[in-house]
Write a protein that binds this DNA or RNA. Structure first.
Lengths: 346, 346
DNA sequence: CTGAAAGCGCTTACAG
DNA sequence: CTGAAAGCGCTTACAG
């Protein structure tokens, strides 16, 4: 069924049928009713390509996912997509996900712009010096970043207070009497990891403690990485008594290392983890295992999508930014450190 | 830049430029060279909507993701998408992901068909009696399922030998001297969970053992579910000595329960887990923690996409199916059960 | 309130 | 080997 046939059946012009379907006000109420009923009963919906060609709007948002051969598919990414996808569905947009090799990421944006099949894109996981931003600006493709780089004033983004969150978490440890605190962080090139590291340093400096380089590690955030790094740090002459993990998977790995050594979480070794509150990866269900820093990724996805659509439909002018506070949550993984009494009597 | 302007610059007709760009053989080699150079230097790519309207092909594949309010976003799903996405990218297709509430899933397929914005769809996580298949057949929308239902002869799918895999895993336990084996499975409505349960029952029956209903559980596959279920089963008067987990997250939960009770994995309690080999969720890195049944999800995604494209481009006629064998892998989580000696002397 | 007509930017028989 | 023209199925000024 197409517009022409439908309008013949109704003995109306395609013009009127189109207007009735698209909610134009000037259509007679009775006419509109007939048109809507006929469209429904014949299962008519406007051909997407024709409509988009006529209106000049792709009604689609692109997400480029760069993927090395045996690289990680980020669970964060999936949950973010779920949030963004909800908003797209209810706003009539399609979500186009483009999976490409890392070397072709820039190319993917260029081809999206040239072939005009998206109205805008979401940029994931910004790096410190991220070429993508200048490329997108040059292409004139509207975008919103999940996270932010150094030139963050120039574009729109949704981010959380990483630095503050990790400063506070480190302070919690210090207040409990910990002095040797391991930071098992994400990849160093990522801005979120840099900010978390900065927050960790802030707290140590404020407390008059120095940063021990052997207690800081950066890499992809997996369970084995947490396990191996915790083991290495615990083998040091002066091992940490507390760990700050940049993801729940890392925390699981730390816990495995602790348990294998016959140590007890929260008594012998304390852990606070960043927990992105992924629904499929809950921190112990009703009763949390880990004290945590929490932020709802799906909410970030929703918000980023809303901002991007506002930008595209020109309801908002310039860069729109949204910086989320995070929650500091308690859990049994946190206990007194070796300097707890010293602190109490100070 | 559009075709008209580009052809004016080249002093050629749009027809010839289009043919040169699309690789038609009849174009003069010299002309084609000029056209390609000009397209490149002006960053020209054919407008997606115009091309699709003219050819009648959407050049897009749909993935509908039904999502309850606080539902799980499946990590399996993300990795499958990565595999499918690789194939789409290299074949010139777009991946359209539609996130909708569970009640609107069927509607989403209907609207995709009516508005003709996809050439086919992938169906995820088939249920025993899955309405989606009849709806898609009625709509005439080509599809490939990841997993298969009861009427699996009628359509195309990619699946693994779930029943055989879980029969074999159960047999491994029985051979090691285990008699009380807990099965912590996925949701009962899912065909994969039903097949795994059947395989488990097969092995017990063959060994002359009866199925103890208190040792079988079905639910969403999360870490807390594994933890709580393992605890409940271990509290039974006649507790299991081995667990079969339908996912790695469940196995993590079982391990937590075991450890908390001061038991040791592989000595006091054995575990075999189904492990979908997700890159971000490795089973202990280089040295596995769990004995496992393994299958590469991303590979399933690749294969499903290839089959669907073959169907759409009519390189293959009827239903195409691909049933994958799985690997049974060893690990330190498996040890002798209470009847190990009885068996050895039998 | 309704309709005839142009146009969105391509592709592709058809003609030469 | 190249081009003029029709057509894909819509939307939207313009006219009445």
């Amino acid at each position: 069924m197409n517009l022409k046939r439908l309008s013949e059946l109704l003995e109306l012009s395609p013009t009127t049928v189109s207007r009735a379907l698209n909610g134009y006000p000037e259509v007679n109420a009775e006419t509109r009713k007939r048109v809507l009923a006929a469209a429904k009963s014949h299962g008519y919906a406007a051909n997407t390509m024709a409509r988009r060609l006529a209106t000049g709007r792709a009604m689609a948002i692109g997400h480029v996912v760069p993927l090395a051969e045996h690289d990680m598919i980020n669970p964060i990414f999936a949950d973010f997509l779920a949030g963004a996808g909800e908003v797209y569905s209810s706003s009539g947009y399609n979500m186009i996900v483009s999976v490409v090799s890392v070397e072709r990421e820039i190319e993917a944006y260029q081809s999206m712009a040239a072939s005009q099949n998206v109205d805008g894109v979401i940029v994931h996981a910004p790096l410190a010096n991220d070429r993508r931003f200048e490329v997108l600006e040059a292409l004139g493709l509207p975008f919103v970043a999940h996270g932010r780089g150094e030139d963050a004033a120039r574009y729109s983004w949704v981010d959380i207070r990483n630095r503050k969150a990790f400063r506070q978490a480190t302070e919690r440890f210090i207040h409990c009497g910990h002095r040797r605190i391991g930071l098992i962080n994400g990849m160093k090139s990522m801005t979120f990891a840099q900010r978390r590291h900065a927050g960790y340093c802030d707290a140590l400096s404020s407390a008059g403690l120095s940063v021990a380089p052997e207690l800081v590690r950066h890499s992809d955030m997996t369970e084995p990485y947490g396990y191996e790094t915790a083991n290495e740090m615990l083998d040091l002459a002066d091992p940490p008594t507390a760990f700050l993990a940049s993801s729940l998977m890392i925390a699981f790995g730390i816990n495995r290392a602790i348990t294998e050594r016959g140590l007890m979480l929260g008594r012998d070794i304390s852990v606070i983890t960043h927990d992105d509150a992924l629904p499929f990866l809950p921190n112990g269900g009703d009763s949390p295992v880990f004290a945590s820093i929490r932020s709802p990724i799906r909410g970030h996805g929703r918000r980023a999508a809303e901002i991007l659509i506002d930008l595209i439909e020109e309801r908002k002018p310039g860069p729109v930014t949204d910086l989320w506070e995070v929650e500091q949550l308690d859990g049994p993984s946190i206990g007194p450190g070796p300097f707890a009494n010293e602190r109490a009597t100070a």
